[in-house]
Write a protein that binds this DNA or RNA. Structure first.
Length: 977
RNA sequence: GCGCGAGUGGCGAAAUGGCAGACGCGCCAGGUUUAGGUCCUGGUGCCCUCGGGCGUGCGGGUUCGACUCCCGCCUCGCGCACCA
């Protein structure tokens, strides 16, 4: 099928390795490995070996063929890299090698494997690196990508080279902007039925317009749609879009010069990137209505095969909690709505608390009401003064201070409200332990059932009523009781909860409240809408312009992509990190000619103002998996038949009803951010009919990190780790020396600052790529973090050297295998190894798979001559790990076709049966003897043999036997009295 | 505080109810070469009176038998945290 080329005709490795005294000319050294590896990398490229065929369209396999109809489609992905200027260290390829091993293995098992790698190239580091080097971000980004491609190509990854791209490519940006427009042009219809049986999905805005036009949906002020003018109509529609502009409190980070999403702000109120302070500012920004999908994002976690840890983190972030909204009437007019997860404790609500930002505080009673205690007023003469002072005080506290200090501060507002079940008036306080951004910004406080409310009640001398006790006759505890139990003291003339458990009491009181119009059962979420605009240069521009009404207008598809303009200075305008009053200043605004543009959007040429924000870095990674399916110029975001073939529900035997990428490998650091955003976009695309899969990533695997030792001298300065020598003294203690002085060992991330970087290039140079691959895969389980130890790499090199020597003569380069049949022991070991390695490969336990290959290889080494049949099997088994060496040996063994699609060996069960089995004979659980027995030995016979074994007799002495446990043929346990 | 994960030789690790430490590094001894290194072979948990004894963070339990299952605790790592 492939034409033989000149490179194949004279294999590089038939020429001796360059003469080093004492080293046989055909030894598998780093140098020979390097020549073999580069030869095969070139051959794979020339032949299109890893071209994954699409079932239709322009992409066939290396010979232009379509996939075999019975080949399962297997879509394999890595979290794509960010091409930083620093290049790769040996930790980065860990996941790429692992997915490559999976892909090569699946390919040998007959799957049509789609595996490619793109680059996530917009974003802050590229921009900062460009500013540092004084070059355009595109220039530095492209140089970084080129360097990373070179480093990764040398690893021999079996990627389809036709499917690579960068998120910064104009063709890609076009579709990112196109998806934004889809989101902009959609609204969420809570009532629309879905194929999966649920209700609620995104629909095109045109269908919302149709509802208004027909009168099926009333306008907000009740006027007929036809009476609204164009601007009024847009003001009705625009806020309902899934992508909308709104003036809301956002996270403003002066140190970065941009606003940030909630997900990009740490619990300490600092930016995840750069660790700068973040301030709440009310600014007009783009948001995406991810909250509309909160339920589905939480529920559909059950459909996918992800680590429980990541699913828990997403559930936690979405933060769904079920409870009730309860309305309290405020004395003197108005209502105060609270959210509670414990409506069953309503009879114990003895006061209320609202957040300092709560609108109820905009008007407060003129004087303190009767019954006001001195401790409640904060020493102020009137509620207005007290509230104003507390609001100022609270606003001055940063999130960090709020968190650090859990003591309860607050002040009485002068308002009283009526508890709807008891009819009593309770005081309304304001305190900053209640957050405006959650629920309704107001709570009913139940000091008998909540730790925080109890602490507040204690500080302000408020009454405590317990309405739940562990048991009916329990003593009333000093503190709050938050557990399940029995409800007490909770009855009025119409309803009694007394004697119920918490769950029954909840549903009972919710029905009662709903009947009276005093409350409803509701669900709230911690998840907020996704703040989607950034004030940066190096990102996707919004395909949006504004007219004279300052309302957004989507550019038509024909005007995509909107390219980044040239600007005099693309560095972000940053501020003093603590300067909360500064304002964001988008770099795109520096090009006046670009910002003010004359366009014909259907009603003749008019002047518009462009949106000068850019999209967050996450935009590009929200849909890149779809681009792998067909990265060429195309008419749709993804060809439906390709999406169904590679990602659709049930596209193979394992993907299940969710569909999605079959295996997605990456670090756990994206557990919430990237993975939540991508799921959201995917569901929007699903609702709009662009994809059939419900989830983008069916199986997620988090690989561990490669970390490294670092060494510091007595002054705390780091010294180059590769120059440190280890010294073991006679008492066994270990010291580390650098240039004769003792240094202290630490453990941490690999990086320039710790002077402990080891690069893949170092490894190619010293050992070759195959050895590096085998070492990384044999270090331990893939999901565990592990320390890098360069000196241990030699073990993997010895393994491959022995394998080479088992097939090729080191002195002559001749083939050494013999055509004789393997002996019985070899045959059994070969088949057992095949069987065990298959199991390990399927479970992604590559470290133990390699261990078993080493055992087989060591056995072959012990033979005088290696039988060809055994050599062929081990070469095929080792191929996913050391593909270049395997191809070379495979070819030397006389095969003319690459082994990339050779069938993965299958064990013959006939050879898995042992001739004899070692039976362990225990006395009271301790091993006292061993017997060699036939595998089909009977229980009675084995018992007799065991009881006569010398070790058993010695150990038993004269003790009587109570019982004998026989598990033929492997174990007998004799239990004495 | 809540949730999740981990704890086994000098080191990375293996064994998921049945021989604890596969495989690799390091270390020790020997061989080839000989200047060293590479490479090859063997050994290597601790103690020992060579019978055996002890040993998987600590304490208890279940079992004929526990690294493995159950209960309690300790240490480390990760996530969340005034979310009503």
């Amino acid at each position: 099928m492939h034409t033989q080329d000149s490179t194949t005709a004279s294999p590089v490795a038939t020429s001796p390795t360059s003469g080093t005294p004492g080293i046989p000319p055909f030894r598998y050294t780093a140098e020979l490995a390097g020549r073999i590896e580069q030869r095969w990398q070139d051959l794979w490229d020339e032949r299109g070996t890893f071209h994954a065929p699409n079932p239709s369209g322009s992409l066939g396999d290396g010979a232009g063929e379509r996939p075999a109809p019975d080949a399962p489609a297997y879509f394999l992905m890595d979290m794509f890299p960010y091409p930083s200027g620093a290049g790769l260290h040996v930790g980065h390829p860990l996941g790429y090698i692992a997915t490559d091993v999976v892909g090569r293995h699946r390919r040998m098992c007959g799957d049509n494997v789609l595996h490619a790698l793109g680059y996530d190239a917009f974003g802050l580091p590229a921009e900062q690196y460009a500013v540092q080097t004084g070059q355009h971000p595109r220039t530095t980004t492209e140089a970084n990508i080129a360097n990373m491609r070179r480093q990764l190509r040398r690893l021999g990854l079996a990627h389809d080279p036709r499917r690579t791209f960068a998120t910064t490519d104009t063709d890609y940006v076009r579709w990112t902007q196109w998806i934004f427009l889809q989101v902009f042009d959609s609204w969420y219809d809570e009532a629309a039925p879905r194929a999966d049986g649920g209700t609620g999905r995104a629909r095109p805005v045109s269908e919302l317009l149709a509802q208004y036009e027909s009168g099926a949906r009333p306008t907000p002020d009740g006027r007929p749609w036809s009476e609204l003018d164009e601007v009024e109509r847009r003001r009705v529609i625009d806020p309902q879009r899934l992508a909308y502009v709104s003036e809301t409190p956002v996270n403003w980070c002066p140190g970065l010069g941009t606003v940030l999403a909630n997900e990009e702000v740490t619990a300490e109120g600092r930016s995840e990137r750069g660790n700068f302070p973040v301030f709440k500012r009310s600014l007009r920004q783009w948001n995406m209505r991810i909250t509309a999908y909160a339920d589905r994002l939480a529920d559909d976690l059950d459909l996918i095969d992800w680590p429980e840890k990541v699913r828990a983190m997403q559930r936690n972030w979405i933060g769904r909690s079920e409870g009730a909204q309860v309305v309290f009437t405020v004395l003197g007019g108005g209502e105060l709505e609270v959210f509670t997860t414990r409506p069953d404790t309503l009879f114990g609500a003895t006061f209320m608390v609202v957040a300092p930002e709560h609108p109820l505080l905009d008007e407060v009673p003129a004087a303190w009401p009767d019954g006001t205690r001195d401790t409640w007023t904060g020493g102020h003469a009137s509620p207005a003064a007290a509230v104003a002072a507390y609001r100022t005080e609270a606003a001055a506290r940063t999130a960090v201070e709020r968190q650090a200090d859990t003591s309860k501060t607050g002040v009485f507002t002068g308002h009283l409200a009526t508890n709807p079940v008891t009819g009593t008036a309770v005081p309304v306080f304001t305190a900053d332990y209640v957050l405006m951004g959650y629920g309704t910004g107001a709570i009913m406080a139940v000091p008998g059932g909540d730790e925080r409310d109890h602490a507040f009640a204690r500080t302000f001398e408020l009454p405590v009523v317990h309405t739940v006790l562990p048991a009916p006759d329990s003593e009333v505890p000093d503190g709050p009781y938050t557990g399940d139990g029995v409800v007490v003291a909770s009855a009025n003339d119409e309803v009694s909860l007394d004697g119920m458990d918490v769950a029954t009491a909840k549903s009972t009181i919710i029905s009662w409240l709903e009947g009276r119009g005093a409350g409803t059962g509701t669900v709230t979420y911690r998840l907020r809408d996704w703040l989607f605009s950034r004030q940066r240069y190096w990102g996707e521009p919004f395909p949006i312009v504004y007219d004279e009404h300052d309302l957004p207008i989507a550019l038509p598809e024909s005007m995509l992509p909107v390219d980044l303009p040239e600007v005099p200075d693309y560095s972000p305008r940053t501020f003093e990190p603590e300067d909360a009053d500064s304002n964001p200043e988008p770099p795109l605004g520096r090009n006046e000619e670009w910002v003010h543009v004359t366009l014909d959007l259907g009603d003749g040429p008019r002047t518009y103002r462009r949106d000068t924000n850019t999209m967050p870095n996450w935009a590009g990674s929200c849909w890149y998996y779809l681009n792998y399916l067909d990265p060429s110029r195309r008419e749709t975001v993804v060809e439906p038949s390709l999406e169904q073939y590679w990602m659709g529900p049930e596209h193979n035997a394992t993907v299940g009803a969710s569909g999605g990428v079959d295996l997605y490998v990456g670090g756990v650091e994206h557990a919430v951010l990237h993975l939540l955003y991508a799921r959201f976009w995917h569901k929007v695309l699903h609702d709009l009919g662009h994809v059939t899969s419900v989830e983008p990533f069916h199986r997620l695997f988090n690989q561990g990190y490669v970390q490294a030792y670092a060494y510091a001298d007595s002054r705390g300065q780091y010294v180059p780790a590769d120059e440190v020598e280890e010294q073991t003294s006679e008492d066994g203690s270990v010291t580390y020396l650098w240039q004769g002085q003792e240094v202290r060992r630490e453990y941490g991330k690999m990086g320039k600052s710790l002077k402990n970087v080891v690069t893949p290039d170092d490894m190619y140079e010293a050992y070759g790529a195959d050895t590096f691959r085998v070492y990384e895969m044999s270090m331990g389980p893939l999901d565990l973090s592990r320390p890098w130890e360069t000196r241990a790499v030699v073990g993997s090199q010895r393994f491959l050297q022995r394998l080479w020597r088992n097939v090729v003569d080191e002195d002559t380069g001749d083939l050494t295998v013999v055509d004789a049949d393997p002996d019985a022991a070899t045959l059994r070991l070969v088949h057992r190894t095949v069987d065990e390695v298959r199991t390990e490969m399927d479970a992604m336990r590559f470290n133990t798979a390699i261990a078993k290959l080493i055992v087989l290889n060591n056995h072959l080494t012990s033979l005088d001559r290696v039988p060809r049949a055994a050599a062929e099997v081990i070469v095929l088994l080792v191929a996913p790990f050391a593909p270049h060496l395997a191809e070379e040996l495979w070819e030397r063994l006389g095969n003319t076709e690459s082994l990339v699609r050779a069938p993965y060996p299958v064990a013959d069960p006939a050879y898995l049966v042992q001739e004899t089995v070692t039976c362990v004979v225990q006395v009271q659980g301790k091993v006292r003897d061993r017997l060699e027995v036939p595998p089909d030995i009977g229980e009675d016979e084995l018992r007799e043999l065991a009881l006569a074994a010398p070790g058993v007799l010695r150990s038993l002495a004269d003790r009587e036997i109570r019982t004998v446990v026989v598990r033929a043929p492997k174990l007998v346990n004799v239990v004495p009295v």
